[in-house]
Design a protein around this nucleic acid. Sequence first.
DNA 1: TACCGTTATTATCTTAAGTTAATTTATTCG
DNA 2: CGAATAAATTAACTTAAGATAATAACGGTA
Lengths: 193, 193
Amino acid sequence: MENEIINFITGYISLTAEEVNIIKEQNLIKSYKKGTVLLSEGEFATECYFVLKGCIRSYYLIDGEEKTTEFYTENQSIRPVSYITNQPSEYYLACLEDCVVAIGSTERNKRLIEKLPRLESMIMQMNGDLLVQNQVSFDNFKHLSPEMRYLKLLETRADLFDRVPLYHLATYLGITAVSLSRMRKRISKSSTD
Amino acid sequence: MENEIINFITGYISLTAEEVNIIKEQNLIKSYKKGTVLLSEGEFATECYFVLKGCIRSYYLIDGEEKTTEFYTENQSIRPVSYITNQPSEYYLACLEDCVVAIGSTERNKRLIEKLPRLESMIMQMNGDLLVQNQVSFDNFKHLSPEMRYLKLLETRADLFDRVPLYHLATYLGITAVSLSRMRKRISKSSTD
DNA sequence: TACCGTTATTATCTTAAGTTAATTTATTCG
DNA sequence: CGAATAAATTAACTTAAGATAATAACGGTA
């Protein structure tokens, strides 16, 4: 189970066998039931996550409506904005399915970095990557029609359509559930004739 | 003129008088004529910028159409994605006005950081800030109507409306120039009656 | 299996954005 | 200054998204 984490890390920096062991013994793996809320608005995030199994959704509230900002599935890492900034969180994190998750807490990570200073460079790279991903997603979003965004998501993350309710995908796409439903009908119609 | 840069830095970390001097003597200030392109698609960014005077626009091309992603004005720093990732740039950077800019090149920054290691922590903070700003902008964009986005921009960056052509603001807002024009008329009408 | 809560679809109406093209208003510069 | 270019507006038409409400399909479970 820890192998996924090692694979993930070695995508950024190379590790010796001893270093692999240090990380493996450090890691803390937990299971959560579907519906568990890992982080709430107003709280300070003290943990970051690596999803081993399941799906975690981040979202925030506008007038009581949940707006989904991201879905995290197998082998994705979650570094809450609040974790990076040490500010109270604007976002929620909740399990859409039963989940198995590797957890890094602020203090344990600090200790780990003392043992393995090269992790610092990984973190900087991760921040850079996050930034770029976000920039590109934003630009795409801005200049693609809702329909294009839907088709693109269908290409890039087809699995989500099997495991996530459409109305969450709708807010993720920045449209209403009604509109998404209509759109799907429109598309299926036009592709058959 | 260098004082703006010092102010900017001390917003992140505190500096001793000697450190201030080191930075001041390091800095390289340049002027560019309106229209100058500082970075083109495909190039590797080797510089980051701090705007002392003027306005710089970043944009990219879709089917030959320019899509503006950001406007940088006085006292804003520009850290091109390509500079952070060492990948060829997807974006252009060009001066919308005559500009005065402080420039940090990769090598000079490296040398500077050797003298002032605490700058590292500033850079990490800047990356974190960038990430958060981007995240928040994205979320806002997704869940605000074009009209709301326009009104919000009018509040937060009113100066842009005096110095930037509307059709650039339009693509920045993710709409067409025609639509922006129509919208402005609609709003001015509804606010007078 | 029958029920209940959740999720998805459908219908109707309203509103605004995209597209294209023509026209007006500003700006620039020889 | 005036011609050329750039920027902004307007008009006409098409298309799709938002809102609201009603209905249908699905899923778990008692």
